[in-house]
Design a protein around this nucleic acid. Structure first.
Ligand code: MN
Ligand code: MN
Ligand code: ZN
Ligand code: ZN
Lengths: 142, 142
DNA sequence: TCGGTATCGAGTATCGATGTCACCTCACCG
DNA sequence: CGGTGAGGTGACATCGATACTCGATACCGA
């Protein structure tokens, strides 16, 4: 289901390719864990890719809207971003110490959510399900 | 498992009964949905219970720490609070339009989280699992 | 190449949340 | 009962994350 580019009409979004967007995208490819907008901004500047913080926020948001990155909230409410290997719907097992992340499936969760919501007459569903803990390394280091 | 009050020792928290704490607690008893600290502050002032915003934040925090209220984060990262009927661990089905909330059990989720985390060697686990949607009324009104 | 426009980004505003600290008030005891 | 002091309060300052403004910049299609 691709969006027609050559069609007329008032709402023909184009999404230009810019150096900044490329830099954010490339960095996300390289990173394993969830990172905040600020982290990403710092890292890009550190390696010499000049970019504004505003642009990092905007870019991450549009990537998230496009479903290209996953977003979740840390305990303190900060948004963290990660390019996931799977484009499919999935959940995460996250180390609350080092941020190490495993993408996981939750068929049991999917059916559970569906069934419960149905029982109560809810529609237009979405859900969150994330597991937090200490990874093997961090358990040891503790 | 009650906390000894008359024991010596350096960490004998007392938690005094104050007008402000009573007011917050009473309002929470009256409310059905998840509400933000700011909401609760406004409502209390509106009905004439003078109280500082700082105090509302502090009180909600301590109630949450004590497990007396549930906290969850809105999509925008704002913390919202609710006194739940069940003191046991449970999850929520929330109307993203009107905030109507149903407390739900998730035995399937519990075992899923446990099993997945074990498989990956994670310890010290916690998890979140909330379902969002439109309640029957809001579906109709849509 | 060139112009229109999407995008950029430094500065500034907003917003939820927490820290500060002088003042207050329970809870307790004589 | 009144005094005492540790816990509590709240106006205000501060913070970190994110949104907004708007002139400057750089894509990209013609
Ligand atoms: Mn799912
Ligand atoms: Mn659970
Ligand atoms: Zn770890
Ligand atoms: Zn509703």
């Amino acid at each position: 289901m691709t969006r027609p580019q050559t069609q007329h009409g008032p709402a023909t979004r184009v999404m230009r390719a810019t150096r900044q967007r490329a830099a954010v995208s490339a960095l996300l490819d390289r990173l394993e864990d969830f990172r905040s907008a600020q982290d990403i901004h710092e890292e890009l500047r550190r390696v010499g890719d000049g970019i504004g913080l505003t642009t990092v926020y905007r870019t991450l948001q549009s990537l998230a809207d496009a479903g290209e990155v996953d977003v979740l909230r840390t305990g303190s409410g900060e948004a963290v971003y990660r390019r996931c290997a799977s484009a499919e719907h999935h959940h995460h097992l996250v180390c609350r110490r080092c941020g190490a992340t495993v993408e996981i499936e939750g068929p049991a969760v999917e059916t559970w959510a569906q069934r419960i919501a149905e029982q109560h007459g809810f529609s237009d569903l979405s859900h969150t399900a994330e597991i937090f803990g200490l990874c093997r390394e961090c358990s040891a280091t503790a």
